[in-house]
């Protein structure tokens, strides 16, 4: 079981993910530099939080063209599990692996706090360790996390059960309180909250452990 962790210039949660995986759960990992193309031997890929390429143009817009992500798209299309956290979620929407877009928070403030989330795992492989309707506490830290999608597409997401994580108290103006979206196949999950920061008891909670541990079983 080896987890690939993508590293862009400007990523800043890559080591947090490594600690959560290796330090807290005993999952081995390997960093994937943005110019790497070799995903051999990996069982899952995480695109971590940060400010890839300075978030120039739009969050995730430049990262989308990184060589490593061409391989990640192939990996995802072949059914490989891919997780995008925060900036990684933004990258997944720019890539087209997940629908919608993430925009400036409604009240313009950067939010940095613990968020309460309701989980509806459906067929999402990353969330299979959680029960339907369970309440989770994950930290959030973002300025551009307001999920947006065309009005006629939201009912499609809802009908497919793709809205797998919702805020109990919407911190950013996301439509339908969306905090995380999964693809219909269940292998690609994007979320603004940080499960990797809820894995070490020293940081106040371990609700995120089951998300990364889903890879083990």
């Amino acid at each position: 079981m080896t987890l690939g962790i993508v590293v862009f210039p400007g990523s800043n949660c890559d080591r947090d993910v490594q600690w959560a995986a290796e330090g807290c759960l005993g999952i081995s990992s390997r960093f994937l530099w943005h110019e790497d193309r070799d995903l051999s031997g990996l069982d899952a890929v995480v695109i971590p939080g940060g400010f890839s390429y300075g978030d120039y143009l739009r969050c995730g817009a430049i990262a989308r063209f990184a060589p490593v992500l061409q391989e990640v798209v192939r990996f995802a299309e072949a059914g490989g599990p891919v997780l995008g956290i925060c900036n990684g979620f933004q990258v997944l929407t720019e890539l087209g692996l997940l629908p919608g877009a993430l925009t400036r928070n409604e009240h313009l403030h950067f939010v940095c706090e613990t968020s309460e989330l309701t989980v509806q795992p459906g067929s999402c492989r990353w969330l299979k360790g959680y029960s339907n309707g369970e309440l989770l506490r994950f930290p959030i830290a973002h300025g551009e996390g307001r999920y947006q999608i065309e009005a006629d597409q939201l009912p499609v997401l809802e009908a497919n059960g793709q809205v797998v994580l919702r805020y109990r108290h919407n911190p950013n103006g996301s439509v339908a309180d969306v905090a995380g979206i999964c693809n219909p196949a269940g292998n690609v999950l994007g979320l603004m909250p940080h499960p990797e920061r809820a894995c070490d008891p020293a940081t106040g909670g371990i609700d995120g452990q089951r998300l990364l541990a889903a890879l083990l079983g």
């Binding site: 300075g54 120039y56 143009l57 063209f65």
Partner: peptide
């Protein structure tokens, strides 16, 4: 304009490589 330069580099990866100048 670092943002313009980063965007120009990404344009090259998209296959649009003849751009001589890009400013945002």
């Amino acid at each position: 304009d670092p943002a313009g330069e980063a965007t120009r580099a990404a344009a090259g990866r998209l296959g649009v490589s003849a751009i001589q100048r890009l400013r945002i």
